[in-house]
């Protein structure tokens, strides 16, 4: 059995990030949610096909991301005049109207962070699958974990829905092809993140490889 498969089987120690309780957890059979016995936080979710499934969905999401950004999302016609918007039109209009900060925020949350999340996920899953760990693997995995909350395509789609209802009273509003692609991106991102198991990736990378009770001793450096 290869070394990383051993690490996967052996549970080892885990400290709950919300309450600091130490848990020793044995081998976990997928699919299984491991929760902190003290505070109830989900420590990790072991899924079936933890590498291939999220990789497939992340790639599909990335492909759909291109038309989602190129095609109009909402088409609006009012007294014979028609306008439509792509994802970044709003960003441009906000910046033009004197609010580049808000525009930047929209750009980050609706375009850049979701894209980086999918790209980071693809990268770390490929690395882990090939058992090749370049120097930036740990940094990319940390970034990917952190971006989970900051990509907000789901919120954006809800805003689209509300804009249909709000504008529907004034004029004819129609969904554009970009909206369907964005919906596809959302579904792919959700399915990918459901199967994504950073705990497993860290273990395969070699983190948490401590034997029970004997942790590596670190010498502090003065900063």
């Amino acid at each position: 059995m290869p070394k990383d498969a051993m690490a996967q089987k052996r549970g080892g120690w885990i400290a709950c990030p919300d309450c600091d309780t130490l848990h020793q957890c044995g081998p976990v059979k997928a699919p299984h949610d491991v929760k902190c016995a003290n505070c109830g936080r989900t420590l990790f979710t072991r899924t079936e096909n933890p590498l291939d499934r999220p990789l497939a969905f992340a790639l599909a999401g990335l492909v759909l991301f291109i038309p989602a950004n190129l095609y109009p999302i909402v088409t609006f016609s009012f007294h014979g005049v028609k306008t439509d918007n792509v994802l970044v039109t709003g960003v441009y209009r906000l910046a033009e109207g004197g609010f580049p900060g808000v525009g930047l925020l929209v750009l980050l949350a609706s375009v850049l962070f979701p894209a980086l999340y999918l790209m980071g996920m693809t990268y770390v899953l490929l690395c882990s699958r090939l058992r090749q760990y370049p120097g930036d693997f740990a940094l990319t995995l940390r970034m990917t974990q952190g971006l989970n909350r900051w990509g907000m395509i789901d919120v954006y789609l809800l805003a689209c829905l509300i804009s249909f209802i709000k504008l529907g009273q004034l004029a004819t509003v129609l969904p554009g092809p970009g909206l369907y692609c964005l919906g596809g991106v959302l579904v792919c991102t959700l399915l990918a993140s459901l199967g994504f198991d950073p705990d497993l990736l860290w273990r395969r990378f070699g983190a948490r490889s401590d034997k029970a009770g004997s942790w590596n001793l670190l010498k502090p450096k003065a900063s």
Partner: peptide
């Protein structure tokens, strides 16, 4: 939600 809603409204209308 409201930030995104505004970004759509100013772009479309």
């Amino acid at each position: 939600l409201d930030v995104f809603l505004l970004s759509i409204l100013v772009a479309v209308v």
